[in-house]
Design a binder for these strands. Structure first.
Length: 454
RNA sequence: GUGAGUGUAGCUCAGUGGUAGAGCUCCGGAUUGUGGAUCCGGCUGUCGCGGGUUCGAUCCCCGUCACUCACCCCA
């Protein structure tokens, strides 16, 4: 019997879950500070809700659920596990539009499922932490989304992160200007998107493999990755101004709306703390087909792949409602953030492995009721209390407490009972002292405070 | 979906054509009112599964499944 979880799925043991919950709490707090409200949707959607929203590759990776009952033998699917949180949001907005505020801002942190083959840092079930704002075409939305994502990373302790910014219309205009026929835009984008991964030479090879002329490829590369430019060592505002000017020249009047929107976003963001981390990147593409305007991707040095991404998708809700509703959002990949934080040791000490502040030992069978009563008293004072469940030898009980990193242990033996005292041992310092029963909780609080801050 | 690699104790891994070992973990004891140390003792295996070659297969061959890595694509 194989006891591992199904392929691409994971169990989260207590230590894992503490870290996940810490990061999710920070994300939720920041999202709330920006006025986003919580939303949850079902794991399962009707399959037609999902199909056709993500592009061909996306459709292939949707986890399908077979029809049940007699229809199961047809092999047809009528349900599917959700592939992301954006499409379910679009469905919700279409369904409840009348009940939702004019500008609906929601955050959502739930698992999504993709039927691809697992790999390092890639799973079939993973959490996304999305914020989206529905109902406005203003670039204030983009600026706030970037601000929220930047605040999250800042609060988690990241420093070298970059919020890459581009625009679908600008991208398309640049490809036109570079002489790529519309039919090959997709191929060219896939290749150009790998610029930071495989470099200029790699992209040139890939472009050739995809049937783009050598002349076109050379022009594209010069457009998207001008020689001599180095984003990392150039200050953000200067880099963005240079890049914007260069792109505008190359476009020669194409995609004017896209250029205006990027200009607007950059100026709105300039005053905020996140401004120093926003970088215009003409090569940023993003795979999902529903984006229509600005697109973002969050990256940090030393990690292939991104910590998250997003963009504007003014057409998606209309696919459900028949009437266009503007929308934009950003999604943080929880697992990617956790991977980087683990590698860099970015978790604060206080989310360590201690499951309780104090363990109450059991002296003997007759002492069980009193041990439970003591535990209840300590819990009533706000402490986290574990009761050792069996009247084992004291040495075993102490060993257990130490193995679980529980800092304090209480003992009520015959001596303590006759004096009405409780002995408290502080394991990290090996100090032990007796206290009147009414003062035990306070004594433990003092000791655990010392454990956590010293 | 494509390609490569790996499957031996709870974990990390040795090993050999003659039906298996180490370290760690775990359990017990030295220490029946006190912990991570030390010492002593102990438990555990359809050697992934099925078939083939062989007198005999954990080892060689074929198939299969699982996992890992890379590609595609993505968070």
């Amino acid at each position: 019997m194989n006891t591992g979880p199904a392929r691409g799925m994971r169990d989260f043991l207590p230590e894992d879950l503490r870290r996940r919950q810490y990061v999710m709490a920070v994300i939720a707090e920041v999202y709330q500070q920006y006025g986003f409200e919580p939303l949850e949707t079902p794991a399962v959607e009707n399959i037609e809700t999902l199909l056709g929203k993500y592009g061909d590759e996306g459709d292939r990776l949707i986890f399908r659920i077979l029809k049940r009952g007699e229809a199961a033998e047809t092999g047809q699917a009528d349900l599917a596990l959700r592939y992301d949180l954006t499409v379910p949001l679009a469905r919700v907005v279409a369904e409840y539009r009348a009940r939702l505020p004019k500008f609906f801002k929601r955050y959502q942190m739930q698992p999504v499922w993709r039927a691809d083959r697992p790999q390092k840092g890639r799973f079939r079930e993973f959490y996304q932490c999305d914020v989206d704002a529905i109902g406005s075409t203003s670039m204030v939305v983009e600026a706030e989304l970037l601000g929220a994502a930047g605040d999250v990373l800042q609060r988690l302790g990241f420093s070298g992160y970059m919020l890459r910014l581009n625009h679908r219309q600008v991208l398309s205009g640049l490809l036109d200007a570079g002489g790529v026929p519309v039919g090959q835009h997709g191929d060219a984008l896939i290749a150009l998107d790998k610029l930071d991964k495989i470099g200029r030479d790699g992209v040139a090879r890939e472009l050739a493999d995809r049937g783009i002329s050598a002349d076109g490829a050379a022009r594209l590369l010069e457009t998207f990755a001008p020689s001599g430019a180095d984003a990392a060592s150039t200050e953000a505002a200067a880099w963005n101004a240079q890049t914007l000017a260069r792109v505008t020249t190359l476009l020669d009047g194409r995609a004017a709306e896209g250029v205006a929107q990027l200009t607007s976003i950059l100026s709105l963001v300039a005053a905020a703390p996140v401004g120093a981390h926003v970088r215009l990147d003409p090569s940023l593409a993003r795979g999902l087909s529903y984006y229509t305007g600005a697109i973002f991707e969050i990256s940090v040095p030393d990690l292939a792949g991104s910590l998250g991404g997003g963009g504007r998708y003014d057409g998606l809700i209309g696919m459900f409602l028949g009437e266009a509703v503007p929308a934009a959002g950003i999604s943080l990949g929880l697992e990617r953030i956790l991977v980087v934080m683990a590698e860099r040791g970015m978790f604060p000490a206080h989310i360590g492995a201690d499951a309780a502040d104090v363990m109450v030992t059991i002296w003997n069978a007759d002492g069980i009721a009193d041990a439970l009563a003591l535990a209840a008293e300590l819990r009533a004072s706000g402490l986290r209390v574990e009761v050792y469940p069996e009247p084992d030898k004291l040495g075993k009980q102490f060993r257990y407490a130490a193995s679980r990193s529980i800092p304090c242990v209480t003992v009520v033996g015959d001596d303590e009972r006759t004096q009405g005292w409780v002995s408290v041992k502080h394991l990290p310092t090996a100090s032990q002292q007796g206290h009147p029963r009414a003062e035990v909780a306070q004594a433990i609080r003092t000791l655990t405070a010392r454990t956590h801050h010293g």
